[in-house]
């Protein structure tokens, strides 16, 4: 039976004290995951003694944009992310990913921190955040630590957050110079979708040469993982000479290397290949190499 005490924290400091003092605490922010677990009477909730509500902590609701760096407070909702003009203009693949999460009602409650901490294989924000080489800032009463988001994820629905820690924000550097990004998604319907597959691609170009490339599929592997092999392949090459279809096939192979042949592979292999191809084609076109 699920039986817990509800505690509301109004400041991050209050929340950290509770996390330090008490055991078996679960954090609730927007509630769009926790309430589903509650309805389904999940085992995880049976183990907790306290539900810590952080949804009222104003200091975690900020988006800070500095010259070279972005900080997204963990309680920023998907709706706010979506409305942010800077992202729409400069990091549009993040906006594109946020746009398709759940529905308006879900985006009004669901938070960036919740999406990251839930670590669902199909969580749409992961792909662009990984491509941006984001870090998470975790705070406890003992101090703070920064973890690369790739190191933060332990597995499907599992992260390396410690019991006394609160995810404070997600930070990433704004790509410099000439860069392009793209987000692709396949769903079974046109709204209220869980990604069947998605993919984020970010590349930095210098004199036509790919300086940096990050191709990150979502819902393709047990948990979001950058496809380093593809990145390595792309880096150093002339963008104009990249064959998107060929690269797409390589990305699909890379996926199957990780997952093995699964029941869904006959579909996901050609589909992921196509998403990667499209992302690369879009970027090439945007860079003026096609058309």
């Amino acid at each position: 039976m699920i039986d817990y005490q509800f505690i509301k924290a109004n400041t991050a400091a209050e929340a950290l004290k509770i996390l330090a003092d008490k055991n078996n605490v679960k954090i609730i922010a927007g509630g769009t995951d926790v309430l589903v677990e509650l309805h389904k009477e999940s085992r995880d909730l049976e183990m907790i003694d306290y539900l810590l509500d952080i949804s009222g902590i104003e200091e975690l609701k900020e988006i800070k944009i500095a010259e070279d760096k972005v900080e997204i407070g963990s309680l920023v909702t998907h709706s706010r992310l979506l409305k942010n003009k800077f992202f729409a203009e400069n990091i549009p693949f993040l906006t594109a990913a946020a746009k398709d999460i759940g529905s308006t009602q879900i985006r009004n409650r669901g938070t960036v921190g919740g999406n990251v901490c839930n670590a669902s294989p199909a969580a749409d924000l992961f792909a662009p955040l990984l491509a941006l080489e984001s870090e998470v800032v975790l705070r406890s009463q003992k101090g703070k630590r920064n973890l690369k988001i790739t190191d933060f994820i332990k597995g499907p629905y599992k992260t390396h957050i410690r019991n006394d820690e609160l995810l404070e924000k997600v930070v990433f550097k704004i790509p410099a110079g000439e860069y392009y990004c793209n987000f692709q998604k396949i769903g079974r319907r046109k709204a209220l979708n869980i990604s069947r597959l998605c993919l984020a691609f970010l590349t930095v170009i210098e004199d036509g040469v790919i300086k940096k490339a990050h191709l990150v599929p979502g819902a393709a592997t047990p948990y979001p993982t950058p496809f380093k092999k593809i990145d390595d392949y792309l880096e150093g090459k002339l963008l104009a000479e990249i064959d998107p279809a060929e690269t797409g096939k390589m990305a699909a192979d890379a996926m199957v290397e990780i997952t093995g042949e699964r029941w869904s592979t006959p579909y996901k292999r050609p589909a992921l290949s196509k998403l990667a191809e499209r992302a690369l084609s879009c970027v090439k076109e945007e860079a003026g190499y096609d058309g």
Partner: peptide
Amino acid sequence: KAVNSCMVLTAQVD
């Protein structure tokens, strides 16, 4: 904001 009232604990919206 429009929200699903099944996705919010009342204690959260004091």
